Simulated assay, not measured.
Amino acid sequence: MTPPVRLVEITAGNREAVCALRVDPDQERFVASVARSLADAATTPEGEPWYRAVYAGDEPVGFVMLSWNVPPGRPGILGPYYLWRLLIDRRYQGRGFGRAVLDEVVALVRADGAGELLTSHQPDDDGPGPFYRKYGFRPTGEIDDGEIVVRLAL
Rank of each mutant, 00 (worst) to 15 (best):
M1N: 00
T2S: 00
P3M: 02
P3K: 08
L7S: 03
T11Q: 03
T11R: 08
E16D: 14
E16S: 11
A17Q: 11
V18M: 06
L21E: 05
R22E: 15
D24K: 10
P25C: 08
D26G: 11
E28A: 13
R29L: 08
F30M: 04
F30H: 00
A32K: 15
S33Y: 04
S33V: 12
R36G: 14
R36H: 11
R36Y: 12
S37C: 14
S37Y: 10
L38W: 11
A41V: 02
A42H: 10
T43A: 15
T44P: 06
T44A: 15
G47Q: 15
E48K: 14
E48W: 15
W50H: 14
R52T: 12
A53R: 12
F63P: 04
W68C: 09
N69D: 14
R74M: 13
R74D: 05
P75C: 12
G76I: 09
G76T: 10
G76P: 09
G76N: 14
G79K: 10
P80I: 04
R85E: 03
R85N: 09
L86A: 06
I88W: 06
I88Q: 03
D89A: 07
D89T: 12
D89Q: 05
R90Y: 01
R91L: 07
Q93C: 03
Q93K: 10
Q93E: 10
G94D: 02
R95Y: 08
R95G: 00
G96F: 08
G98P: 03
G98N: 02
G98C: 04
R99D: 00
R99P: 00
A100F: 00
A100G: 02
V101E: 05
L102Y: 00
D103V: 06
E104F: 00
V105W: 00
V106D: 05
A107D: 11
L108Q: 13
V109N: 01
R110Y: 07
G113N: 06
G113K: 01
A114P: 04
G115V: 09
L118Y: 05
T119H: 01
S120K: 06
P123E: 13
D124V: 02
D125N: 09
D125E: 15
D126R: 07
D126N: 08
P128G: 09
P128N: 06
G129R: 09
G129S: 06
P130D: 10
P130M: 07
F131W: 07
R133W: 10
R133I: 07
K134H: 14
Y135S: 02
G136I: 03
G136W: 08
G136M: 05
R138P: 03
T140A: 10
T140Y: 04
G141S: 11
E142K: 15
I143L: 12
I143Y: 02
D144G: 01
G146C: 05
I148D: 12
V150W: 00
L152C: 05
L152E: 03
L152N: 01
A153H: 12
